[in-house]
């Protein structure tokens, strides 16, 4: 019984010796598992496709399939009287979405909130990431990364409600609820997603480049503008993809601290729940998907997608 044969391809098994003809006319010693390992060792392509089958299946069925289902159901409608699903293709949902003033306002507001959150996170995250990657002693770096990560281990709801308490009229900050409160809370929630890619990008930036700029006469500001920023820009964009997309789809934070303001997510949620209009909810849900696709297409050229 050979227990290693099924986990890792062994170093060239006897039958895989270069002198052995293909197809294994020399009988491989050991059991069928060992023979299978030998076959996989020889056929790199077969091995690769077996390894990739699970993630490809996941991507194909669970993700792209779900997206396709979303688009198709966005083209259905519900019967106004019975509330039953009518599986006929129609552009009615999208027509309503585009022609109704309030939906346009909400879509723009959502993009605005996502952009504001991204900008705030960038302004806070860059100096933090720089201090972590370039100024902190190596041992402190590890602790700082953990410190940045710990908020992610706490429940989203706990954090959102903590901000609700802080922001409430008689709370510690007492700024009240609304769009500003939503932006503040979302900025807090997604900050680690901006810090970590920038930190990684800055860590990859050799210190010698910063020293070289200084050596050639550049002060801090110029070094930042001409060396640090252009070389970490892809990492910044990578972070912004997280903060932007997470903010764009959020509806819980708005519900908790948003007061009466609504975002795209709320419209989707209300149409699934209260209004019981699943096709319209699907149509609304395609809006952030399309916005993100446009965003990704725009940033593709910066090389940011290699930084995720």
């Amino acid at each position: 019984m050979n227990t290693t044969a099924n986990t890792t391809p062994p170093g060239p098994p006897p039958s895989a010796a270069p002198s052995a003809p293909r197809g294994g006319t020399t009988p491989a010693p050991g059991g069928p598992r060992r023979r299978l390992a030998a076959i996989l060792h020889r056929r790199a392509r077969l091995r690769l496709s077996l390894l990739l089958s699970a993630p490809m299946l996941w991507l194909g069925v669970a993700y792209l399939g779900a997206l396709a289902a979303l688009f198709v159901s966005a083209l259905w409608r519900t019967d106004t009287f019975t509330g039953d699903l009518v599986r006929e293709l129609t552009w009615a949902n999208f027509r309503e979405l585009l022609t109704t003033e309030v939906y346009r306002t909400i879509a723009l507001r959502s993009v605005g909130v996502a952009a504001a959150v991204t900008l705030i996170d960038l302004v806070i995250a860059f100096p933090m990431a720089f201090a972590m990657a370039k100024l902190a002693p190596p041992r402190a770096q590890r602790w700082l990364v953990i410190a940045v990560l710990t908020p992610l281990w706490a429940s989203y709801l706990v954090k959102a409600y903590a901000w609700r308490v802080l922001l409430s009229a008689d709370g510690l900050l007492g700024w009240g609820y609304g769009l500003t409160a939503t932006i503040i809370t979302l900025s807090y929630l997604w900050l680690p997603y901006m810090i970590l890619p920038i930190y990684a990008g800055l860590e990859r930036l050799p210190n010698s480049l910063l020293e070289a700029a200084g050596d050639l006469g550049a002060r801090g500001r110029r070094t930042f503008r001409t060396v640090v920023w252009p070389l970490t820009f892809p990492a910044v964009v990578a972070g912004s993809i997280f903060t932007f997309s997470l903010s764009l789809g959020d509806y819980i934070t708005v519900k908790i601290v948003g007061g009466r303001s609504q975002l795209i997510g709320n419209v989707v949620y209300d149409n699934i729940g209260a209004a019981n209009n699943l096709p319209f909810a699907a149509a609304v849900a395609t809006v952030p998907v399309l916005i993100m696709l446009a965003y990704l297409a725009a940033v593709r050229r910066t090389g940011a997608l290699e930084n995720l």
């Binding site: 010698s208 070289a212 050639l216 006469g217 001409t226 070389l231």
Partner: peptide, 20 residues
């Protein structure tokens, strides 16, 4: 004095050329 205030220049071991 800071590096940018000194009349010396350095050739770094890894060359430190700006890749962009």
């Amino acid at each position: 004095l800071a590096p940018f205030e000194r009349d010396v220049n350095t050739v770094f071991q890894d060359y430190a050329l700006f890749p962009h």
